[in-house]
């Protein structure tokens, strides 16, 4: 095991897989010589050259559409999109083309490709650099949507994505990028659709996504001092979703809160809630609660910005209230 940051762990996965498989190439703005806005490809241009570390014009629809054609024809494109907000221009290519191509070709075309980049509110990035659209992507058949939270998971899941045949959207919360964690030395992969118990507990289940997993763990540490044991679950992928692990936890705790930064209506929390309501109703001792980002664009000024996402304090209070309910 060695200690790596989230960014370095992801980069190691990319580097090792590129060395292993010459079909992999990366496209994005400033990912060539510059090494990526978030150092996602630092040092790889020197190793693999301009065809495999391909800088692009600011044309997200164009290069994502190009990557779709590249995957259809036998290569493995990685789109390094920087901010998820930027690929909204490519939603037609993502939903109508990338996601549907295996189905429309009756499984004769494979679609091994990864769109990866940042999500999340924080750092006064304002509304065009703060999106978290995993709920929207998870609504689309044909896509895999992963939200790794630890350095070990981002490495293992990125590897799984690069060795698979389905299109994957890998969303990396920008406030997790410099987090450090232990990463195994061996060649390992982390499967999609298997949740991780980020902290074991017995009084209430908290399901987070990306940064809110970390916030839930911090809230659990506060509540532990008051004798409340929170079980924090990190689904790691929102599509496929490991509902079994969540149901198992609810069976034990009888209480469920879903905490996520994204918009609440028709969102991730609603999905988890509906599935637990359908399959775990008898295990519930209290209504399912959700704590989500505000239903509003993301403001710039720090006092405004912090108002619209769940904080450790609001999560702590909400979990406490739920346990007392």
């Amino acid at each position: 095991m060695k200690e790596l940051t989230y960014t370095v762990a992801a980069r190691e996965a990319l580097d090792e897989e590129m060395a292993r498989d010459p079909r992999i190439f990366v496209m994005g703005e400033g990912i060539g010589k510059r090494g990526g806005n978030f150092n996602t490809t630092l040092g790889l241009y020197e190793k693999y050259g301009p065809l495999r570390l391909c800088d692009t014009p600011i044309a997200e629809r164009g290069f994502i559409g190009l990557a779709v054609g590249a995957a259809m024809s036998g290569s493995i494109p990685v789109i390094d999109f920087m901010m998820v907000d930027f690929i909204l221009d490519a939603m037609g290519e993502i939903i109508n083309q990338m996601a549907k191509m295996q189905y429309m070709s009756s499984g004769r075309l494979r679609m091994p490709m990864v769109l990866r980049g940042c999500i999340g509110i924080g750092g006064a990035a304002a509304t065009h650099h703060s999106g978290s659209y995993y709920s929207i992507f998870s609504n689309i058949p044909g896509l895999r949507v992963i939200v790794p939270t630890t350095p070990a998971d981002v490495k293992g899941m990125f590897r799984t994505a690069l060795r698979g045949n389905d299109p994957v959207i890998m969303l990396e919360h920008k406030n997790l990028l410099s987090n450090k964690g232990l990463v195994p030395d061996e060649d390992y992969t982390t499967p999609f659709g298997q949740a991780r118990i980020a902290r074991a507990g017995k009084h209430v289940t908290a399901v987070g996504v990306a940064l809110t997993v970390q916030k839930c763990v911090q809230a659990a540490e506060v509540l532990a001092k008051q004798g409340i044991e929170v079980e924090v679950i990190d689904p790691r992928s929102t599509s496929p979703l490991d509902i079994a692990t969540i149901l198992q936890s609810v069976k034990k705790t009888g209480r469920l809160m879903i905490v996520d930064d994204a918009f609440e209506p028709c969102g991730f929390g609603a999905e988890v809630s509906a599935q637990v309501g359908a399959h775990g109703f008898d295990d519930l001792d209290a209504p399912i609660r959700r704590l989500s980002g505000a239903f509003a664009p993301t403001p710039y000024s720090p006092p405004l910005e912090q108002e619209i996402v769940p904080s450790v304090e609001t999560i702590t209070k909400a979990l406490y209230d739920l346990v007392k309910e």
């Binding site: 559409g65 054609g69 494109p77 109508n96």
Partner: peptide
């Protein structure tokens, strides 16, 4: 059924041919 994407996808296949 969507007008336009074939242009991008052909460029993508061209990229594969060049890459490989």
């Amino acid at each position: 059924g969507i007008v336009g994407p074939c242009i991008l996808q052909a460029a993508g296949a061209g990229y594969t041919f060049k890459l490989l």
